[in-house]
Protein backbone atom coordinates (compact mmCIF):
# COMPACT_ATOMS: atom_id res chain seq x y z
CA UNK A 1 0.00 0.00 0.00
CA UNK A 2 2.76 2.44 0.95
CA UNK A 3 4.60 1.80 -2.30
CA UNK A 4 1.39 2.22 -4.28
CA UNK A 5 0.65 5.45 -2.45
CA UNK A 6 4.14 6.78 -3.07
CA UNK A 7 4.02 5.97 -6.76
CA UNK A 8 0.56 7.47 -7.12
CA UNK A 9 1.56 10.71 -5.39
CA UNK A 10 4.80 10.81 -7.38
CA UNK A 11 2.92 10.58 -10.66
CA UNK A 12 0.51 13.21 -9.41
CA UNK A 13 3.42 15.55 -8.71
CA UNK A 14 4.82 14.89 -12.18
CA UNK A 15 1.41 15.81 -13.60
CA UNK A 16 1.44 19.05 -11.63
CA UNK A 17 4.82 19.86 -13.18
CA UNK A 18 3.34 19.10 -16.60
CA UNK A 19 0.35 21.37 -15.96
CA UNK A 20 2.69 24.14 -14.86
CA UNK A 21 4.65 23.77 -18.08
CA UNK A 22 1.43 23.94 -20.09
CA UNK A 23 0.47 27.10 -18.22
CA UNK A 24 3.90 28.56 -18.85
CA UNK A 25 3.63 27.92 -22.57
CA UNK A 26 0.14 29.45 -22.67
CA UNK A 27 0.59 32.44 -20.41
CA UNK A 28 4.20 33.40 -21.00
CA UNK A 29 5.33 32.00 -24.33
CA UNK A 30 2.15 32.35 -26.42
CA UNK A 31 0.95 35.56 -24.76
CA UNK A 32 3.82 37.95 -24.81
CA UNK A 33 4.42 39.47 -21.33
CA UNK A 34 4.93 42.77 -23.15
CA UNK A 35 1.34 42.64 -24.36
CA UNK A 36 0.05 41.97 -20.85
CA UNK A 37 2.06 44.92 -19.54
CA UNK A 38 0.88 47.18 -22.32
CA UNK A 39 -2.74 46.27 -21.67
CA UNK A 40 -2.31 46.92 -17.95
CA UNK A 41 -0.54 50.29 -18.03
CA UNK A 42 -2.04 51.56 -21.26
CA UNK A 43 -0.57 52.16 -24.69
CA UNK A 44 0.74 55.62 -24.00
CA UNK A 45 2.48 55.02 -20.66
CA UNK A 46 6.06 56.21 -20.27
CA UNK A 47 8.75 53.52 -20.75
CA UNK A 48 9.82 53.77 -17.07
CA UNK A 49 6.26 53.08 -15.85
CA UNK A 50 6.02 50.21 -18.23
CA UNK A 51 9.36 48.71 -17.13
CA UNK A 52 8.48 49.20 -13.46
CA UNK A 53 5.14 47.45 -13.92
CA UNK A 54 6.91 44.48 -15.48
CA UNK A 55 9.33 44.30 -12.55
CA UNK A 56 6.51 44.59 -9.99
CA UNK A 57 4.56 41.78 -11.60
CA UNK A 58 7.52 39.53 -12.28
CA UNK A 59 7.47 39.72 -16.07
CA UNK A 60 10.91 41.31 -16.42
CA UNK A 61 13.07 38.25 -17.07
CA UNK A 62 13.89 36.27 -20.21
CA UNK A 63 11.73 33.21 -20.87
CA UNK A 64 14.11 30.24 -20.78
CA UNK A 65 17.69 31.45 -20.82
CA UNK A 66 19.17 34.45 -19.05
CA UNK A 67 22.04 35.61 -21.27
CA UNK A 68 23.20 38.16 -18.67
CA UNK A 69 25.07 35.37 -16.93
CA UNK A 70 28.02 33.34 -18.15
CA UNK A 71 27.50 29.85 -19.56
CA UNK A 72 28.75 28.13 -16.41
CA UNK A 73 26.59 30.18 -14.02
CA UNK A 74 23.50 28.30 -12.79
CA UNK A 75 21.57 31.56 -12.73
CA UNK A 76 21.58 31.39 -16.50
CA UNK A 77 18.78 28.84 -16.05
CA UNK A 78 17.32 29.75 -12.66
CA UNK A 79 16.96 33.51 -13.13
CA UNK A 80 14.33 33.13 -15.88
CA UNK A 81 10.56 33.38 -16.12
CA UNK A 82 10.25 29.60 -16.40
CA UNK A 83 12.14 28.91 -13.17
CA UNK A 84 10.39 31.80 -11.46
CA UNK A 85 6.98 30.53 -12.57
CA UNK A 86 7.67 27.05 -11.15
CA UNK A 87 9.13 28.43 -7.94
CA UNK A 88 6.21 30.75 -7.28
CA UNK A 89 3.44 28.34 -8.17
CA UNK A 90 4.92 25.44 -6.21
CA UNK A 91 5.33 27.61 -3.11
CA UNK A 92 1.84 29.10 -3.57
CA UNK A 93 3.27 32.59 -3.93
CA UNK A 94 0.72 33.89 -6.41
CA UNK A 95 1.78 37.51 -6.46
CA UNK A 96 -0.44 40.37 -7.50
CA UNK A 97 -3.34 40.67 -9.87
CA UNK A 98 -2.51 42.08 -13.30
CA UNK A 99 -5.67 44.15 -13.29
CA UNK A 100 -5.74 45.96 -9.96
CA UNK A 101 -2.53 45.06 -8.09
CA UNK A 102 -4.39 43.36 -5.24
CA UNK A 103 -2.89 40.28 -3.66
CA UNK A 104 -4.23 37.17 -5.38
CA UNK A 105 -3.71 34.97 -2.32
CA UNK A 106 -5.90 37.30 -0.26
CA UNK A 107 -8.64 37.36 -2.90
CA UNK A 108 -8.57 33.57 -3.06
CA UNK A 109 -8.81 33.42 0.71
CA UNK A 110 -11.77 35.83 0.73
CA UNK A 111 -13.55 34.04 -2.09
CA UNK A 112 -13.26 30.48 -0.79
CA UNK A 113 -15.83 31.05 1.98
CA UNK A 114 -18.72 32.32 -0.17
CA UNK A 115 -17.91 29.65 -2.78
CA UNK A 116 -18.14 26.90 -0.21
CA UNK A 117 -21.43 28.18 1.20
CA UNK A 118 -22.85 27.78 -2.31
CA UNK A 119 -21.15 24.61 -3.50
CA UNK A 120 -21.40 22.45 -0.38
CA UNK A 121 -25.22 22.60 -0.11
CA UNK A 122 -25.42 22.32 -3.90
CA UNK A 123 -23.26 19.22 -3.89
CA UNK A 124 -24.98 17.57 -0.91
CA UNK A 125 -28.52 18.28 -2.07
CA UNK A 126 -27.71 17.26 -5.63
CA UNK A 127 -26.24 13.98 -4.47
CA UNK A 128 -29.14 13.15 -2.16
CA UNK A 129 -31.76 14.12 -4.73
CA UNK A 130 -29.96 12.18 -7.47
CA UNK A 131 -29.59 9.02 -5.39
CA UNK A 132 -33.18 9.15 -4.14
CA UNK A 133 -34.64 9.66 -7.60
CA UNK A 134 -32.37 7.08 -9.20
CA UNK A 135 -33.23 4.47 -6.56
CA UNK A 136 -36.90 5.18 -7.12
CA UNK A 137 -36.55 4.88 -10.89
CA UNK A 138 -34.42 1.76 -10.69
CA UNK A 139 -37.05 0.17 -8.48
CA UNK A 140 -39.71 0.88 -11.12
CA UNK A 141 -37.46 -0.04 -14.04
CA UNK A 142 -39.14 -1.00 -17.33
CA UNK A 143 -42.38 0.70 -16.33
CA UNK A 144 -43.94 3.93 -17.50
CA UNK A 145 -42.57 5.74 -14.45
CA UNK A 146 -39.06 4.75 -15.47
CA UNK A 147 -39.60 5.72 -19.09
CA UNK A 148 -41.13 9.06 -18.14
CA UNK A 149 -38.27 9.97 -15.81
CA UNK A 150 -35.68 8.93 -18.41
CA UNK A 151 -37.33 11.13 -21.03
CA UNK A 152 -37.44 13.97 -18.52
CA UNK A 153 -33.74 13.48 -17.77
CA UNK A 154 -32.93 13.63 -21.46
CA UNK A 155 -34.97 16.81 -21.85
CA UNK A 156 -33.35 18.52 -18.87
CA UNK A 157 -29.88 17.49 -20.05
CA UNK A 158 -30.42 19.23 -23.37
CA UNK A 159 -31.03 22.68 -21.91
CA UNK A 160 -28.09 25.05 -21.62
CA UNK A 161 -27.16 25.88 -18.03
CA UNK A 162 -27.38 29.56 -18.89
CA UNK A 163 -31.09 29.07 -19.62
CA UNK A 164 -31.74 27.42 -16.27
CA UNK A 165 -30.28 30.44 -14.55
CA UNK A 166 -32.21 32.93 -16.68
CA UNK A 167 -35.46 31.00 -16.24
CA UNK A 168 -34.90 30.56 -12.50
CA UNK A 169 -34.20 34.23 -11.96
CA UNK A 170 -37.14 35.27 -14.08
CA UNK A 171 -39.78 32.82 -12.88
CA UNK A 172 -38.92 32.39 -9.21
CA UNK A 173 -37.10 35.63 -8.54
CA UNK A 174 -39.07 38.11 -10.62
CA UNK A 175 -42.55 36.72 -11.15
CA UNK A 176 -43.14 34.65 -8.02
CA UNK A 177 -40.79 36.74 -5.82
CA UNK A 178 -40.06 33.78 -3.52
CA UNK A 179 -36.38 34.55 -3.16
CA UNK A 180 -34.14 37.55 -3.88
CA UNK A 181 -32.75 37.49 -7.42
CA UNK A 182 -29.14 37.98 -6.44
CA UNK A 183 -26.91 39.04 -3.59
CA UNK A 184 -24.92 37.71 -0.69
CA UNK A 185 -24.40 38.30 2.98
CA UNK A 186 -21.69 36.93 5.27
CA UNK A 187 -24.31 36.28 7.96
CA UNK A 188 -25.44 32.68 7.33
CA UNK A 189 -29.07 33.34 8.31
CA UNK A 190 -29.42 36.04 5.67
CA UNK A 191 -27.19 34.26 3.16
CA UNK A 192 -29.54 31.25 3.21
CA UNK A 193 -32.24 33.36 1.57
CA UNK A 194 -29.83 34.48 -1.13
CA UNK A 195 -28.46 30.99 -1.68
CA UNK A 196 -31.80 29.20 -2.00
CA UNK A 197 -32.34 30.14 -5.64
CA UNK A 198 -28.82 29.37 -6.98
CA UNK A 199 -28.79 26.05 -5.13
CA UNK A 200 -32.20 25.15 -6.53
CA UNK A 201 -31.17 26.08 -10.07
CA UNK A 202 -27.87 24.23 -9.75
CA UNK A 203 -29.48 21.06 -8.42
CA UNK A 204 -32.09 21.00 -11.18
CA UNK A 205 -29.60 21.63 -13.98
CA UNK A 206 -27.35 18.80 -12.86
CA UNK A 207 -30.02 16.29 -11.91
CA UNK A 208 -30.68 14.75 -15.33
CA UNK A 209 -27.18 13.45 -15.99
CA UNK A 210 -26.76 12.29 -12.39
CA UNK A 211 -29.98 10.30 -12.34
CA UNK A 212 -29.15 8.56 -15.61
CA UNK A 213 -25.70 7.59 -14.38
CA UNK A 214 -26.89 6.44 -10.94
CA UNK A 215 -29.78 4.52 -12.44
CA UNK A 216 -27.45 2.36 -14.56
CA UNK A 217 -25.27 1.76 -11.51
CA UNK A 218 -28.27 0.66 -9.43
CA UNK A 219 -29.72 -1.51 -12.18
CA UNK A 220 -26.39 -3.22 -12.64
CA UNK A 221 -26.29 -3.94 -8.91
CA UNK A 222 -29.88 -5.19 -8.92
CA UNK A 223 -29.04 -7.98 -11.34
CA UNK A 224 -26.46 -9.43 -8.95
CA UNK A 225 -26.88 -12.73 -7.14
CA UNK A 226 -26.90 -11.26 -3.64
CA UNK A 227 -30.08 -9.33 -4.46
CA UNK A 228 -31.81 -12.57 -5.38
CA UNK A 229 -30.51 -14.13 -2.17
CA UNK A 230 -31.82 -11.22 -0.13
CA UNK A 231 -35.21 -11.51 -1.76
CA UNK A 232 -35.25 -15.27 -1.28
CA UNK A 233 -34.69 -14.98 2.43
CA UNK A 234 -37.70 -12.70 2.61
CA UNK A 235 -36.38 -9.15 2.55
CA UNK A 236 -38.90 -6.50 1.68
CA UNK A 237 -38.49 -4.45 -1.49
CA UNK A 238 -37.55 -1.24 0.30
CA UNK A 239 -35.07 -3.05 2.51
CA UNK A 240 -33.42 -4.72 -0.48
CA UNK A 241 -33.06 -1.40 -2.28
CA UNK A 242 -31.66 0.58 0.65
CA UNK A 243 -29.79 -2.02 2.67
CA UNK A 244 -28.37 -4.14 -0.14
CA UNK A 245 -28.41 -2.34 -3.49
CA UNK A 246 -27.62 1.16 -2.26
CA UNK A 247 -24.86 -0.04 0.04
CA UNK A 248 -23.10 -2.02 -2.66
CA UNK A 249 -23.59 0.68 -5.26
CA UNK A 250 -21.86 3.17 -2.98
CA UNK A 251 -18.42 2.07 -4.23
CA UNK A 252 -18.90 3.18 -7.85
CA UNK A 253 -20.79 6.25 -6.63
CA UNK A 254 -18.02 7.10 -4.18
CA UNK A 255 -15.33 6.98 -6.84
CA UNK A 256 -17.41 9.28 -8.99
CA UNK A 257 -18.14 11.70 -6.18
CA UNK A 258 -14.76 12.01 -4.47
CA UNK A 259 -13.24 13.56 -7.57
CA UNK A 260 -15.80 16.37 -7.41
CA UNK A 261 -15.07 17.33 -3.80
CA UNK A 262 -11.96 19.44 -4.44
CA UNK A 263 -13.92 21.46 -6.98
CA UNK A 264 -16.23 22.70 -4.26
CA UNK A 265 -13.45 25.17 -3.50
CA UNK A 266 -13.21 26.65 -6.95
CA UNK A 267 -16.91 27.48 -6.88
CA UNK A 268 -19.44 27.64 -9.67
CA UNK A 269 -18.54 29.99 -12.49
CA UNK A 270 -21.97 30.85 -13.85
CA UNK A 271 -24.05 30.57 -10.69
CA UNK A 272 -21.79 32.82 -8.66
CA UNK A 273 -21.51 35.46 -11.31
CA UNK A 274 -25.27 35.55 -12.00
CA UNK A 275 -26.39 35.47 -8.39
CA UNK A 276 -23.82 37.96 -7.13
CA UNK A 277 -21.98 35.59 -4.81
CA UNK A 278 -18.45 36.95 -4.26
CA UNK A 279 -16.73 33.56 -4.57
CA UNK A 280 -13.93 32.14 -6.64
CA UNK A 281 -16.15 31.47 -9.65
CA UNK A 282 -17.13 35.12 -9.77
CA UNK A 283 -13.46 36.01 -9.33
CA UNK A 284 -12.60 33.94 -12.41
CA UNK A 285 -15.32 35.60 -14.47
CA UNK A 286 -14.02 39.00 -13.35
CA UNK A 287 -10.49 37.98 -14.34
CA UNK A 288 -11.67 36.95 -17.81
CA UNK A 289 -13.55 40.17 -18.38
CA UNK A 290 -10.71 42.31 -17.02
CA UNK A 291 -7.87 40.58 -18.94
CA UNK A 292 -6.38 39.64 -15.59
CA UNK A 293 -3.95 36.95 -16.70
CA UNK A 294 -2.21 36.31 -13.40
CA UNK A 295 -5.47 35.64 -11.55
CA UNK A 296 -6.72 33.42 -14.35
CA UNK A 297 -3.44 31.53 -14.39
CA UNK A 298 -3.69 30.96 -10.67
CA UNK A 299 -7.27 29.74 -10.92
CA UNK A 300 -6.40 27.28 -13.71
CA UNK A 301 -3.45 26.03 -11.66
CA UNK A 302 -5.58 25.61 -8.54
CA UNK A 303 -8.31 23.86 -10.51
CA UNK A 304 -5.80 21.39 -11.95
CA UNK A 305 -4.11 20.88 -8.59
CA UNK A 306 -7.43 20.13 -6.91
CA UNK A 307 -8.38 17.77 -9.70
CA UNK A 308 -5.12 15.85 -9.33
CA UNK A 309 -5.61 15.65 -5.57
CA UNK A 310 -9.16 14.46 -6.15
CA UNK A 311 -7.92 11.74 -8.49
CA UNK A 312 -5.37 10.53 -5.96
CA UNK A 313 -8.03 10.52 -3.23
CA UNK A 314 -10.35 8.59 -5.53
CA UNK A 315 -7.73 5.95 -6.24
CA UNK A 316 -6.91 5.62 -2.56
CA UNK A 317 -10.54 5.41 -1.48
CA UNK A 318 -11.13 2.88 -4.24
CA UNK A 319 -8.23 0.77 -3.04
CA UNK A 320 -9.51 1.01 0.53
CA UNK A 321 -13.16 0.32 -0.28
CA UNK A 322 -12.56 -2.55 -2.69
CA UNK A 323 -9.88 -5.01 -1.59
CA UNK A 324 -9.98 -6.70 -4.99
CA UNK A 325 -8.36 -3.73 -6.71
CA UNK A 326 -4.86 -4.58 -7.79
CA UNK A 327 -2.18 -2.38 -6.30
CA UNK A 328 0.31 -3.03 -9.08
Amino acid sequence: MAAYLLRRVGYGFLTVLGVLFLLFVLFFAVTNPDDIARKAVGERARPEVYAQWKINHGYDKPLFLNRDFAGSDARRYTDTLLAEHYRRMLTFDFGRSDADDSSIAKRLWDGAGPSLTLTVPLFALGLVAGIALALFVAFFRETYIDRAVLVLCMLTMSVASLLYIIAGQYLIGMLLKWFPISGFDPNPAIAARFLALPVLVGVISGLGADVRFLRTVFIEEMSRDYVRTARAKGCGDARVMVRHVLRNALIPILTNVVVQIPFLFTGALLLESFFGIPGLGALTVEAIQGNDFSTLRTMVYLGALLFIIGQILTDISYALADPRVRLS
Binding site: L26, F27, T284, V300, F307
Partner: peptide
Protein backbone atom coordinates in the same frame (compact mmCIF):
# COMPACT_ATOMS: atom_id res chain seq x y z
CA UNK B 1 -6.12 17.46 -15.15
CA UNK B 2 -7.05 21.00 -16.04
CA UNK B 3 -10.82 21.43 -15.64
CA UNK B 4 -11.99 21.63 -19.24
CA UNK B 5 -13.91 24.87 -18.94
CA UNK B 6 -10.97 26.63 -17.29
CA UNK B 7 -8.58 25.26 -19.92
CA UNK B 8 -10.94 26.40 -22.64
CA UNK B 9 -11.15 29.88 -21.17
CA UNK B 10 -7.38 30.07 -20.71
CA UNK B 11 -6.77 28.99 -24.30
Amino acid sequence: SVPSLLLLIAL
